[in-house]
């Protein structure tokens, strides 16, 4: 299952997409520790796979929470994306 956490509002699209089929094979879940804002957690999806999920309370504010990892110029690689060995995480913005 591919899950898109985030939202679309009038200012843009802010989605973090997780491919559960790739994520569920990962034991480490290094992304959870890599995020400086601790927005991820490990949980079971509807089909019983252990996957990384974006916490409920931050889903509607990703644009703001992720802002520090996304400076307007010279953006470095995102820590969560770098930490994922399976390329399961993508950001839409």
């Amino acid at each position: 299952m591919i899950v898109h956490y985030g939202y679309l509002d009038a200012s843009g699209e802010y989605f973090i997409t997780v491919d559960d089929s790739k994520c569920s094979v990962c034991i480490e879940k290094g992304c959870i520790k890599a995020c400086p804002k601790s927005i991820f957690m490990e949980s079971e999806n509807d089909y019983g796979e252990k996957v990384m999920m974006v916490k409920d309370e931050v889903r509607k504010m990703l644009k703001y929470i992720c802002a520090e990892c996304k400076p307007s110029v010279n953006r470095p690689p995102l820590p969560c994306v770098t930490a994922c060995p399976y390329d399961a995480i993508t950001h839409s913005w």
Partner: peptide, 9 residues
């Protein structure tokens, strides 16, 4: 197999 939900706006 794939979903998104928009409940922010």
């Amino acid at each position: 197999t794939n979903f998104l939900m928009n409940d922010k706006c």
